[in-house]
Design a protein around this nucleic acid. Structure first.
Length: 748
DNA sequence: AATCGTATCT
DNA sequence: GAGATACGAT
């Protein structure tokens, strides 16, 4: 393969090399595989792992590979030299290399951070921890080392700037933009003609949306967005181009929403069909990223063309691109930003509260401003309703809308959620991807609130967030921490974002997150937790997988469709879910465009398919989907504990597909709300099937008493650990099939 | 000079 | 059609 070919075939793949140091072969192997496999979930990155057994080997390897290693992840307890001693040696010999210390002994966290490790990860390492690891790797690679893209690998060696690694990101205090330009453009400049084309993956787009959300649409300019996104390989031009598209999309949406007519929202009847849109293009077929094949709200569940039910396509959500933008938002409170003119100028918005499309507006309707918001016409855009355009954009850029207005139960979400396990809206936070510091961390919130820090570190624009705090040893406590409610880490983190921006303050939901217990590390929970606590959907969700917050939930609910859809169905009865209601036409809402509106339309069209009767049967619980993607890890990795210094004591049923008993009740209640009687319910059944596939949700008995619909109650209980003694992991781990099945989604 | 917004190109 | 690039404006 020629260089040019290589260039074409591997566009913009960010390569990071991680050294794993662990004396325990199983733990080491798992860690290595988790890291390596994860690359399949994000085509834009490639992880190479160098696994060594102890500190000595690590040091010797570093001597040779120092310039090729971006991050070191080491166990704490190791013979000869422990992880921190290794860290110190590394610092002494190689400078301030980023080191992550992991241990099942969480008491080592403070010590680890104090000694300069950038992060501490409690063992067992879970998939949800990966984002944090990537985050650190990317951060340091970006800050201190050259950006090596696969196509430029051969040039990497002489671009490393050792001095850079001496500094922690915040210490370096260098302009990221310039720095990156300096280092990353270098390689680009050396490749004379070809410049790889950036693909705006879900992940990137979500990050992009987050940036806009955070900054405010009116103030979001390429440079700011870029800074917020903080993705090393992104250029301002990339962002500018994307922003242009996005703005076009927003205009178009506004335009076709009837804004020009001075009316509220006319239900937009989409006619989504499967098609390629950039939304999809960012994902190769191997990717397990969400790929709504149906448009907004057209959940697969409701579609007769749905593929056989499988279980989760998403092993875990760290790569999940679900946006988290408006997790707590309910449609009724959402309004489009009011703009004084067409252009997305930096001119202050006319309406008091909302700064952007993403900002919830709690205030009354601003019908009169509606047209302004759209600012249509001034640009001479087509006055015709270009539904095709909208359709396309909805599928792509439109994601934001979906998220914004959706809650887990919303049809719109469904489609979204259908591909991604944890998400709807909320999950997104948790489901963030590797580079995405903010959210990811979120998911991985631990009692000590590391997650928060990371988030904070991301949001440069966020007041008070500046501290990298927890991530860096020098600022462990950080500001944000102080603001966090002791018992509600999750919330606080959200709170940081939200109160004024997400409208969380008005949402009781925060508490959910708060319910996250120290031991509850799953992203899923967090994510859902972020949803309004009173939202049945969330709780239900959470309740579905008491033992396995993020992951398990995926497991039990079929990914492509069911997960979300069932979600959606749940919602109906609960809550009256705000989101649902919002969606409903009858619901009082902003007269002007709102995300809810969009969804509303969606919702209107959201009709159960008479024929759609999906039954999830064990046989369908394949590890792989039709594309060969791994569906879900059949059990929570967090239950792995190969650390010698800590054994799992509590045994748990091997049955990992449990659903709380009360879920059935809830679901049945839900069904009563469906007059059409055509809702499709999932029969998630482990042992037996419920013969009734319609309007029936056969929920297995839940034997986990810790389940509690109200996150504020009992959720802090430790989740029973999986009794891994039930499995011979050592042997299993030595079998490629097993490990591959766990981590591979790229079956050749 | 940097960066933006937009038009246009690939 | 997604993303890159050109280019005038600020």
């Amino acid at each position: 393969m020629t260089f040019a070919q290589s260039l074409n075939n591997q566009s913009s793949v960010l390569r990071i090399n991680i050294m794993v140091v662990d004396d325990d072969p199983v733990s080491r192997e798992i860690m290595s595989r988790m890291l390596e496999r994860s690359k399949y979930r994000d085509p834009s990155m490639e992880i190479t792992v160098i696994a060594v057994r102890d500190a000595r080997e690590a040091l010797s390897t570093l001597k040779i590979q120092r310039n090729n290693i971006d991050l070191i992840v080491t166990d704490y307890y190791m013979p000869g030299m422990n992880g921190l001693q290794l860290k110190q040696q590394i610092t002494r010999q190689f400078g301030n290399f980023p080191v992550i210390v992991m241990s099942s002994d969480t008491n080592k966290e403070q010590e680890s951070l104090a000694c300069g490790s950038v992060c501490f990860l409690p063992k067992p390492i879970k998939p949800t921890d990966l984002p944090k690891i990537y985050q650190v790797a990317f951060t340091y690679k970006r800050k201190g080392k050259s950006i090596s893209r696969t196509e430029h690998n051969h040039m990497d060696t002489n671009v490393s700037i050792p001095q850079q690694i001496q500094l922690l990101p915040e210490q370096a205090n260098v302009s990221r933009t310039k720095k990156n330009k300096k280092f990353s453009s270098r390689s680009d400049s050396r490749s004379p003609s070809k410049k790889s084309k950036l693909s705006w993956s879900d992940y990137l787009h979500d990050l992009f949306l987050q940036a806009i959300h955070h900054i405010g649409l009116d103030k979001a300019v390429p440079k700011k967005i870029l800074e917020f996104m903080d993705v090393s390989y992104l250029t301002r031009e990339n962002v500018a181009s994307h922003l242009q598209k996005y703005r076009n999309f927003l205009r178009k949406v506004a335009e076709s929403s009837g804004m020009l007519h001075g009316r509220g929202m006319e239900p937009y009847h989409s006619n989504y069909t499967t098609s390629s849109s950039w939304y999809d293009t960012g994902l190769n077929n191997k990717s397990s990223y969400s790929k709504p094949r149906h448009g907004l709200g057209q959940s697969r569940l409701l579609s007769n063309t749905c593929e056989p039910v499988r279980f989760n396509q998403m092993p875990y959500n760290h790569m999940n691109r679900l946006s988290t933008y408006e997790p707590h938002r309910t449609g009724s409170n959402l309004t489009m930003p009011i703009k004084s003119n067409l252009s997305f100028s930096t001119q202050p918005l006319q309406n008091e509260g909302s700064r952007s499309f993403l900002e919830p507006t709690v205030t009354a309707n601003k019908t009169g401003q509606t047209s302004q918001v759209l600012g249509l016409g001034q640009h001479g855009m087509s006055a015709t309703n270009d539904n095709n355009f909208i359709n396309n954009m909805m599928r792509s850029y439109g994601r934001i809308s979906i998220y914004a207005s959706s809650t887990s139960n919303q049809p719109g979400m469904n489609s979204h959620g259908s591909s991604t396990p944890n998400q709807p809206g909320m999950s997104s936070y948790g489901s963030v991807s590797p580079n995405q510091l903010g959210m990811s961390s979120h998911g991985s919130l631990t009692p000590s609130q590391r997650g928060m820090s990371s988030y904070e570190s991301l949001t440069s624009n966020q007041p008070g967030m500046s501290s990298h705090g927890s991530l860096t040893p020098t600022q462990p406590g950080m500001i944000s921490r102080g603001s966090l409610t002791p018992t509600q880490q999750g919330i606080s983190s959200y709170g940081i974002l939200s109160p004024s921006q997400l409208g969380l303050s008005t949402q009781p939901g925060m508490s959910n997150q708060g319910s996250l217990g120290p031991t509850q590390r799953g992203m899923g929970m967090s994510n859902y937790g972020s949803l309004t606590s009173y939202q049945p959907a969330l709780s239900t969700h959470g309740s579905l997988f008491p033992n396995q917050p993020g992951i398990s939930s995926h497991i039990s609910l079929p990914p492509t469709q069911q997960g979300m859809s069932s979600f959606g169905s749940l919602t109906t009865n609960h809550s009256g879910m705000s989101s649902y209601e919002i969606l409903t036409p009858a619901q009082p809402g902003p007269s002007h465009i709102s995300y809810g509106l969009l969804l509303d339309n969606e919702n209107t069209a959201y009709k159960p398919q008479p024929h759609a009767s999906t039954t999830i049967q064990p046989d369908n619980l394949s590890l792989y989907d039709d594309l060969g993607n791994i569906n879900e890890i059949p059990f929570d990795l967090s239950n792995f504990d190969f650390d010698h210094d800590k054994q799992q004591e509590e045994a748990v049923s091997a049955n990992k597909f449990e659903i709380p008993a009360n879920l059935e009740t809830e679901l049945n209640q839900t069904s009563s709300l469906e007059e059409d009687g055509d809702w499709t319910f999932l029969n998630i059944n482990q042992g037996h099937f419920n013969e009734k596939t319609s309007n029936t949700f056969a929920a297995p008995e839940m034997n986990d008493p810790t389940f509690n619909k109200n996150p504020n109650h009992a959720q802090e209980q430790d989740v029973p650990d999986f009794d891994w003694s039930l499995l011979d992991f050592v042997n299993l781990a030595n079998e490629n099939d097993f490990m591959d099945s766990m981590f591979t989604n790229d079956m050749n």
